[in-house]
């Protein structure tokens, strides 16, 4: 590995320096915590309120991953159907595009009219995560080497064999790219829908905790919940980056080390 320690130390140093500066500004100017809490106070709140916050974190993460799973199954299946038949693609693609370009914030209140709050949040997260997977997967399935397709035809491969042995592996890098985008979007969709829902009680996620803490002017807790949301986003990104690397590093150029 040519990657030196500096690659990791430098961003960490910048991050810590910014937190230090923030802490210093708050302390020197004696800014009250209901205006701007210091990072140390946010950390303390995170520990103190962990029971409430961790519960909310689990709710949000569960919805995010459920939505992602549903989006993956739905997106991949529809992309395969698109690849099978131009008619299906012609009929359904415009609908998918309409759902994609309509801002989720605008759809969420409507969904809340028809669905129970938790289900509505799940559907919102699903809707935003679905399209990147569908479009990337469809592109991936269509981008298999046409010479290889000829070769499969020459050896009289069934369409099923062609799908499993050729089109799906060829689509894998595209799919993983879509999944990485969809992971972040699913989290955003879940948060947006929760804020629109504003539901209380047992099933409340992180976004609701932010709204609730805002009503109570509990600013440190707002920041603590925000920090958890950021951390979740980073975690999701890391998971899918690692997954990509694990699946592609042997053969795909995208995960090739830029050596020399």
């Amino acid at each position: 590995m040519r990657r030196s320690l500096i690659d990791y130390v430098l961003p960490l140093f910048v991050f810590l320096a910014m937190l230090g500066l923030w802490e210093a500004v708050v302390r020197i100017n004696a800014i009250p915590p209901y205006v701007l809490p210091a990072p140390s106070l946010i950390g303390a709140t995170l520990v103190k309120d962990w029971d409430t916050l961790s519960g909310a974190l689990m709710v949000t993460l569960r919805i995010t991953f459920q939505a992602l799973l549903a989006a993956t199954i739905g997106g991949v299946t529809l992309a395969i159907l698109f690849a099978r038949s131009r008619w299906i693609e012609r009929s359904f693609l415009p609908l998918a595009v309409v759902l994609q370009v309509t801002p989720i914030v605008a759809i969420a209140p409507l969904l809340l009219v028809y669905l129970e709050a938790n289900t509505a949040v799940l559907v919102c997260a699903f809707l935003v995560a679905f399209f990147p997977i569908l479009s990337n997967m469809a592109l991936g399935l269509a981008s298999a080497d046409h010479n290889l397709i000829d070769l499969f035809e020459l050896y009289k491969a069934s369409r099923w064999k062609q799908l499993v042995l050729l089109r799906l592996p060829a689509a894998l890098p595209y799919f993983l790219g879509g999944l990485r985008i969809a992971g972040g979007l699913a989290l955003i969709g879940a948060i947006v829908a929760e804020i629109a829902a504003g539901s209380a009680g047992q099933g409340a996620g992180l976004a609701f905790r932010i709204v609730e803490a805002g009503f109570r002017l509990n600013i440190p807790r707002m920041f603590a919940a925000l920090a958890l949301i950021s951390a979740s986003g980073v975690l999701i990104y890391l998971i899918f980056t690692l997954l990509s690397w694990a699946l592609l590093s042997r053969w795909h150029d995208s995960s090739r080390e830029r050596g020399l």
């Binding site: 080497d145 000829d150 070769l151 050896y155 042995l165 592996p169 894998l172």
Partner: peptide
């Protein structure tokens, strides 16, 4: 039985050499 060799190697990049050579047999 016909074998075909293209202008480029046209291998499946995700498969090992063994699996690439296996392909026609596998399809059979």
């Amino acid at each position: 039985e016909v074998g075909f060799v293209f202008q480029d190697a046209v291998l499946m990049p995700w498969a090992s050499v063994f699996d690439n050579v296996w392909l026609p047999l596998r399809l059979a």
